[in-house]
């Protein structure tokens, strides 16, 4: 699934340190499928009747705006699967956990970091009813008359825009991998096998 531009409503979540247990509880990790996790997304926050996910003003949003350290904690890709399943295609945050950001990109979800004051502006504007436009091609977020440029890793951008199969790309380098394996066998033979020795 490719992603170039996403426009419309956004969930103004805010908060710092939204962890992946909060995004999808461990109870949901017993599945052996990637599908259907949207039903469990953000369950911990949905206890609060005033939560943004059940507010009709934001229903069906494809963009989520959060504070610092979004997606911290467990490496569970189920968090990215759950968000993609509930229709979220873009997460904008002050900072993002490295593992969560990687998982998001691999599931067609764009993770964008913006400075705290830009995120504060977006939260205010969206709470006031404004829509947001995220343009991956132009690397810009537009909202309430302002435009914020964002940086993004070139490879991730290309993967999202072109919907590339990363494993196929890497396997095209199979010779390079084999050459590395050959070097390890000579330079560090103790790493070349992991089995029981005796």
């Amino acid at each position: 699934m490719t992603l170039i531009r996403v426009e419309g409503r956004a969930y103004p979540l805010g908060r710092a340190n939204v962890d992946t247990d909060m995004i999808i509880a461990s109870e949901w990790l017993k599945t052996i499928s990637r599908e259907g996790l949207g039903k469990g997304a953000f369950a911990a926050l949905r206890h609060d009747p005033a939560n943004v996910f059940d507010d009709p003003a934001f229903a069906g949003a494809a963009i989520l705006i959060a504070g610092e350290n979004f997606g911290c904690g467990s490496s569970r890709e189920h968090a990215a699967w759950a968000m993609a399943d509930m229709g979220v295609r873009v997460v904008i945050a002050v900072s993002l956990s490295d593992i969560f950001a990687s998982n998001a990109f691999k599931n067609g979800v764009l993770a964008v970091c913006l400075p705290a004051d830009a995120v504060a502006h977006l939260l205010d504007a969206v709470r006031g009813g404004a829509g947001i436009a995220v343009d991956l091609e132009a690397q810009a977020v537009r909202c309430g008359g302002r435009t914020f440029a964002f940086a993004i890793d070139a490879f991730r951008r290309r993967c999202l825009m072109e919907g590339l199969d990363e494993i196929a790309l890497t396997l095209a380098d199979a010779e390079g991998i084999a050459a590395h394996e050959g070097r390890v066998a000579v330079d560090a033979p103790w790493l070349a096998m992991a089995g029981r020795r005796a």
Binding site: S102, N103, T170
Partner: peptide, 19 residues
């Protein structure tokens, strides 16, 4: 620490594409 897509990548290629 990696997610499931990267687990699949390591299983298939014994590598990770990282910055």
């Amino acid at each position: 620490g990696i997610g499931t897509s990267e687990v699949e990548h390591v299983l298939a290629t014994q590598t990770l594409r990282l910055n």
